[in-house]
Amino acid sequence: MSTSTAMSTSPALTWGSYRRTITSVALVLIVLVFAFSSARRVVWVDLYEFFLWMETTWFGVIGKTWGAAFAVVEAFHLLAMALLGGAVFVADFRLLGWSFPDVPAQDVLDKAHKVFVVGLIVVLSTGIFMACGVAGKIYWLPVFWYKMLALMTGILFVFFIKRPLLNRDLDEIKPWVVKLVAVASLLVWITVAATGRWIGFAGS
């Protein structure tokens, strides 16, 4: 009797207990299918109007006509990138066991996350400004779209996987999962920064 009860509830139990896994795997699959199919092209063509509009906004007009303003914003974009990078390195190095082994990981992670969020906000706002100024150019650059892909992946990964996971008692999590999360996070954020730099070269 007890067996049949367990069997009858199992589908609901599976969905309920693996909701996050199923959602994330579905999302990853959707992104991959989108990225490697013709759907990407359709959306890309549709987005052209939006990028043209970006150049006509205040940000776009200032960015295009006032080179010095663009350069200053660019410098602050880099400074915020350094701050964000510092927070990512400290947190992920702690997860890998390379830094502050004597300080509770949770302490390092929480404090690093605060710095990360500040860095992210500045990077995003300066980034949007810059994107408006050169919207007509970046639209045509594959590296810009790779950067957006990496950036979206990074943000979703941090807020929907990394933070919720690391909020738990770290001792309960398998050590290699912790290390995998750290490596993935380092890889994503370094890629975001590197592809960002390449936008400048690719457009010139």
Binding site: L84, G85, G86, F89, I190, A194, R197, F201
Partner: peptide, 20 residues
């Protein structure tokens, strides 16, 4: 560009630590 990118990206390590 690789040399330049390395120079700029190392900001994340060098200045990231310094800022913290």
């Amino acid at each position: 560009n690789w040399v330049e990118s390395t120079h700029v990206l190392t900001l994340m390590l060098c200045l990231g630590m310094l800022f913290l």
